[in-house]
Computed example of a mutant assay.
Amino acid sequence: MAKSLLSTAKTILPLTSSSPSPCPSSSPNTCIKSNSSIITQCKAISESLRLSSPIITKRNLTINLTTILTLSLADKGFFDAEAAILEAEDDLELLERVKKDKQKRIERQELVSASPTETAYLQELVYKLGKVGQAIKDNKLSVASSVLGSTTNADYIKQVNRAFTKLSSSPEEKTEVDTFNSALASLITSVSQRDIKSSKIAFVSSVVSFEKWTTSAGLVGQLQGL
């Protein structure tokens, strides 16, 4: 609206800025009335422009303040509702995760219960590691060597690896199996060479990796001596 008025003013104002054309001598009264009318119109337009701007600004300010207040109150309710929805979704995700973990534990227990032979192999390994640990502690590496055997081709190691293969289901468990086999090989070598320091290090590594695997595989409480 203001731009329209300015455009109109620009169209009209040049008529007053230039020198008034001389009135025809024949109608001086008409010329005076015409010039007076133009000046009156310009004053009216100028006054309209001066008054219209503050009114519009004040009205816009009132509307903006009302809108901001309304939106802020509405946003508070919206964010509260959104937070409640997100919290409910988190609870549902947690519940679903708990259900999946429980189902996984049940399946693991069923697998272990259905694998008594493999469990017996692992139990024998626990007994052997216990004897080896005590022998290393007593610095009797010859005793430890007789329990472990001289190579990784011993029957008990093959049996243990069959149990590992059957009862391992995740990449992490398979990684622990590899770590255990590597540590066990180092243990056999160190004991055979009568290297007490290396034997202790390899023994600890073997036990730690085996315990991690049993925990992940759900065998905690199933094997005695751990």
Rank of each mutant, 00 (worst) to 15 (best):
A2L: 12
T215K: 13
F78Y: 15
K58R: 12
K33N: 14
S37I: 10
T119P: 01
E96C: 04
G218Y: 02
K128F: 03
S205F: 01
A202M: 03
T152K: 07
V143Q: 06
L5A: 12
D138Q: 14
S115P: 12
I196G: 03
S7K: 12
Y121V: 05
G221R: 13
S26Q: 04
S209F: 03
S142D: 15
E110G: 05
G225W: 05
A9C: 00
D178H: 06
K137G: 15
L167K: 01
I12V: 15
S145C: 02
A185W: 02
T215N: 09
E176L: 11
N153Y: 06
K197N: 04
F203Y: 15
R105C: 04
E172T: 15
L184N: 05
L92W: 07
S25K: 02
L5T: 08
E82K: 11
P116M: 01
L111D: 13
L49I: 11
L226I: 15
S27H: 08
T57F: 10
E176V: 05
L73S: 09
I63T: 09
F164N: 01
F164I: 02
D101I: 10
A185V: 01
L13R: 11
L226Y: 03
N35T: 12
A154R: 04
D90Q: 11
T165F: 12
I63M: 06
F164H: 12
T119Y: 02
S26N: 06
V112R: 12
I136K: 09
K104R: 13
F78S: 05
A120W: 00
S182E: 04
T117S: 04
T151V: 05
S72L: 08
L125G: 03
A74K: 02
I106H: 05
S21K: 03
E124N: 14
L226R: 14
T66I: 07
S142V: 14
T214C: 10
T179D: 01
A217V: 08
K166R: 14
L92V: 13
K158E: 14
V220Q: 04
L148I: 06
G130L: 04
P20I: 11
C31A: 14
A81T: 04
I188M: 04
T70S: 06
D101F: 06
G218M: 02
Q41R: 08
K33G: 05
I63E: 13
Q193M: 02
A183R: 06
I106V: 15
Q159T: 00
S21G: 04
V112W: 10
L223W: 08
S192Q: 09
C31W: 02
I188G: 03
S170N: 03
E211P: 00
I136M: 02
E118F: 06
E173D: 10
S145I: 00
P28A: 13
Y127C: 02
Q159G: 01
S150V: 13
L65H: 08
E173N: 07
L51V: 11
V98M: 13
A84G: 01
V132L: 07
K33E: 13
A144K: 07
S4Q: 13
L111S: 13
N29K: 10
A120N: 08
I39L: 10
I63D: 11
E82N: 06
Q134G: 03
L122S: 10
A81M: 05
V143A: 09
V98P: 00
S209C: 09
G133I: 08
S37M: 09
A88S: 08
A9P: 00
C42W: 01
